[in-house]
Nucleic acid binder design. Structure first.
Lengths: 214, 214
DNA sequence: CTATGTGAAGGCCTTCACAGCG
DNA sequence: CGCTGTGAAGGCCTTCACATAG
């Protein structure tokens, strides 16, 4: 029971979000149909995803909302667990992320904001001061950082990633538009806005040519 | 020659990025092998992706770097074309995006920054002033907005999306953690940081349990 | 002899369909 | 009778393998 598709894991997060809404509204049971509709997939997919883990449902009734939500949170590792997050790169994006309160709400806590530019040292964003990224090793170790967000310029990204993994960080959310060499045993998720925008551009070009030659 | 996999489109962006680097370094030809290694895939995948569109290569030599890059830019719709982007939601993230210069570099230009909070009207970020999102229709039309970035709170996202599509916007990059109903003929790409973080959390939990019970 | 272009094979994820439970 | 759990079928994307071009 190990090889869970990435796509399934992504949907688990969406299920949790929908279940939270449903729980607040006071729903007790939810069908795979409704849960699927709610996140933009279908009932069979929901049942398949969930049965990777356990039998959460009751035939004829559906899934108990609150119970299912707690179980999924546990599976995702954000129940009774707060991951400690460091942001490397105190540019506009890094500072915006630290200032955003939405993550603290559930399971994640910012514990460091680093940059290599001395002019930024000491500036305060959210609950953090900018500190010197030359002290990355020490800070990451002492604050027991679990996850790093990489918001440095692309040319610096590989070096920082190597430093992070050398100190034991095993999970990285990378915002730099760089093609990183990813060490084994490390998970890197890329958030690449240029790729997303260019995907939209490609879609628009297709639309246009289809309406030009109908 | 129509049904291009999303995955292929995403890789096109990465190919372009790698080719740009290669072109600057003065490379004339590049093999599918090198291009694949460069973006973290393999040679066969590169050839398959490219041959959806044309025969760009020369057997025995590889692909002409500069030529291939220009052709891919054209396919992605970012050669001789600048898409006009509006950001809806002048929170920390929206303002950081507008202030980030990286997109203007190629193919995208910010033309509006809207919010519904009167206290923010008139504040300047990058080259833009915050304007009233009540005037969305007029502004989007007059400035010929092609793409919208949604950086509003989740509960507001669906309403804004509906407004945008009503005025003819067909491409949206959504940052709100909301399960949106997406109208037909509209492309929405979601950038969902909670989903990414929770994916990393899931990975870390898996790592831990595997090292506990080896 | 090297490297592309491409049908065929393979693998992974989604969808189907139905047995079985409440 | 409704809805879950799940093997089987289907579809899409990736990888293979080789004919072909330079």
């Amino acid at each position: 029971m190990d090889n869970i598709p990435q796509a399934t894991v992504r949907r688990l997060s969406l299920y949790c979000r929908y279940l939270e809404k449903k729980e607040v509204e006071g729903g007790n049971f939810i069908s795979s149909r409704e849960l699927g509709d709610g996140i933009g997939t279908n009932a069979a997919q929901v049942r398949k995803d969930l049965c990777f883990f356990d039998r959460f449902g009751t035939p004829g009734r559906g899934y108990p909302v609150s119970f299912l939500r707690r179980r999924l949170l546990a599976i995702l590792g954000i129940k009774d667990q707060t991951w400690r997050v460091a942001v490397i790169g105190a540019g506009k994006l890094g500072c915006a992320l630290v200032g955003y309160g939405g993550f603290n709400r559930q399971g994640f806590e910012f514990v460091a904001l680093l940059d290599n530019n001395p002019e930024k040292f000491g500036r305060v964003y959210g609950a953090l001061r900018v500190e010197d990224s030359a002290r990355l090793d020490e800070i990451v170790t002492r604050r027991r950082v679990d996850i790093a967000m990489l918001t440095v310029p692309a040319p610096a990204a590989q070096g920082v990633l190597d430093n992070l993994t050398a100190v034991g960080v095993r999970a990285v959310l990378n915002f730099a538009p760089a093609n990183l060499d990813i060490p084994a045993q490390v998970a890197v998720r890329n958030v690449d806005l240029a790729v997303e925008l260019e995907g939209l551009s490609f879609f628009l070009v297709g639309l246009r040519s289809r309406s030009d030659n109908p």
